[in-house]
Write a protein that binds this DNA or RNA. Structure first.
Lengths: 324, 324
DNA sequence: CTGTTAGCGCCTTCAT
DNA sequence: ATGAAGGCGCTAACAG
């Protein structure tokens, strides 16, 4: 069933049908006839054929590392919720942080003339090392979440992670904490920024800087905290680069019968749902993933609308609960 | 840049270029010329134009309720990991469990001649109430995860949730537990099936049936357990309909200084990452979401390949850790 | 306002 | 093996 079939049965020309489909003015009489036939056959115009003409399939892509992480799934969710009501289809790409994978996804998107791409995370900055690819992305509206791409139409939405950790650190200092430890998760651009926020604040107040590193989430926090306790070092607070790490730390402290939020404060990062899955509820820095991802989608829409957008900076918020 | 431009510059006909693109036999000499021009311009054939001819955009859709739940994001992840290497693009649809939303997504998919759809969860069975829509889905390969749609080309991949809870219950009984409580989360088809698995097992062994209901995750488990403890009822084990509920229960038990896994056993459901975010690690029923979602994708591929597939039934597995 | 016609970029017969 | 021509379903100019 195509526009010709409809036209024939309604006894009009295809352009009349096309006009009907695109809400252009046609005589009420013809409109009724066309409408009737379309309803009769449940006819839906082919978006593919429309796409061939308009050069747009009304699809946008979200590139993430791994949808299984709440951070990414939340981002993908918000983006879909923002764009799909406007008729866009949202394609999801799990790159696993792998370069080849990422490039393959991008090739695939290029083939369908993707309307826009949203990159979640600074990890995608590696694309700047592929100038040839970058040039091919020049005409595509792109939004980078916490990243920066050197194409003509790329806009960034940043959340200042360093500031986030500064806020957390200042809060503890002003609360009178003197021995604040820091457990860093991984060694990425972002995690180093966070650590520097902690470090600089400690130095500002003349307090000792104690940074531990881990590459694991819950177990990483648990083990690091175990080591801290074993070391007999003074401690009245600990900041963790990720909520899950903080959960591990809290679990360890509780087992050692140390009152979390009283004897030792714990602050996490992300303000994820995890902060509600422990007792006491965890204080955490909200990096606004819901807001930034929604904002990214909105920015993309404006770009698609031809607007010229500048980079956006958002401030993370310290979300105080009971663990600090 | 299109196939004509390439043909002109390579001094061949467009059909030669087309043949090159589709790996058909052409003279090595021409092949080289075409290849050179294609490389020179980074030419990629338009999947839209190809789609207009082939009537396929090589995209499949995953319909979920809410990607923010690990269950759904894991499913979407596995499906993408299975299909994207084969060149399929994966569209994500968050229906929020809303009928109108779902229908709108489906309309949108129909317009691009979607190659296949995977529905995650029995909630999508409501589509059976829309016979007109169903008929339009007749020619589309569909896989239902734990659901059943009455279209010509719909296949289901089931996991027997009732059996899962029977396994959990039997395990506790055989361990010598006599006072096994059950905390049910929500009141869906699936949650009722689970509860019945528990109930029937208790009855089989002449043990008391004690079911509590909650509509919340962590807090639901925490509060229910608080009430159980207050009631002074005998308890040596508790089964929860969801891991998060079990986490809340564990948290409550620990605060009451009751040894989880010794005095009171706790078993959750889903075998999610959450089972590793508590101490002791949580015993849980693995409903094989990773496997079923991957299987769903594989089944879909076979259907796209023309194979005739029958429904698949998988057995959940009791995943024993330290809480029971 | 309506209909005719020429593309959009590709694939696919069908001759050559 | 290669090329010419028609068609996929729709939109957009252009006449009428």
């Amino acid at each position: 069933m195509n526009i010709y079939d409809i036209a024939k049965e309604a006894n009009v020309s295809i352009s009349t049908v096309s006009k009907y489909l695109n809400n252009k003015n046609i005589r009420p009489e013809l409109k009724e006839r066309v409408e009737a036939v379309i309803k009769k056959y449940n006819y839906v115009p082919s978006a593919i054929a429309q796409g061939l003409v308009s050069k747009s399939m009304k699809t946008i892509a979200v590139m993430v590392v791994d949808l299984r992480f709440p951070h990414y799934s939340t981002a993908a969710f918000k983006i879909d919720m923002t764009l799909s009501p406007l008729g866009y289809r949202v394609i999801i790409c799990n790159t696993l942080g792998d370069v080849k994978n990422s490039l393959k996804y991008i090739e695939s998107l290029l083939k369908i003339n993707i309307d826009g791409i949203i990159f979640i995370g600074s990890i995608f900055n590696f694309l700047n090392n592929f100038p040839a690819l970058l040039k091919r992305l020049d005409n595509i509206p792109i939004v980078c979440n916490n990243g920066k791409l050197n194409t003509k139409r790329a806009v960034s939405v940043f959340v200042d992670d360093k500031l986030g950790m500064q806020k957390a650190s200042e809060y503890l200092v002003k609360k009178g904490r003197k021995n604040i430890h820091y457990i860093q998760y991984l060694d990425t651009t972002s995690s180093n920024l966070k650590a520097s926020g902690y470090k600089e604040t400690m130095e500002k107040y003349g307090l000792p800087v104690k940074i531990y590193h881990t590459t694991e989430f819950f177990d990483g926090g648990y083990d690091s905290m175990t080591n801290i306790l074993k070391s007999k070092e003074k401690i009245d607070a600990v900041i963790c680069g990720e909520d899950l790490v903080a959960m591990g730390a809290i679990s360890c402290l509780k087992e050692a019968n140390i009152a979390v939020g009283k004897e030792v404060d714990v602050i996490g990062y992300n303000a994820s749902e995890y902060t509600n899955l422990c007792a006491p509820r965890m204080t955490s820095v909200d990096n606004l993933i819901e807001k930034t991802s929604e904002e990214s989608a909105l920015v993309l829409l404006k770009m698609l609308d031809g607007e010229d957008i500048k980079d956006i900076n958002l401030e993370p918020i310290l979300c105080i609960k009971d663990s600090a």
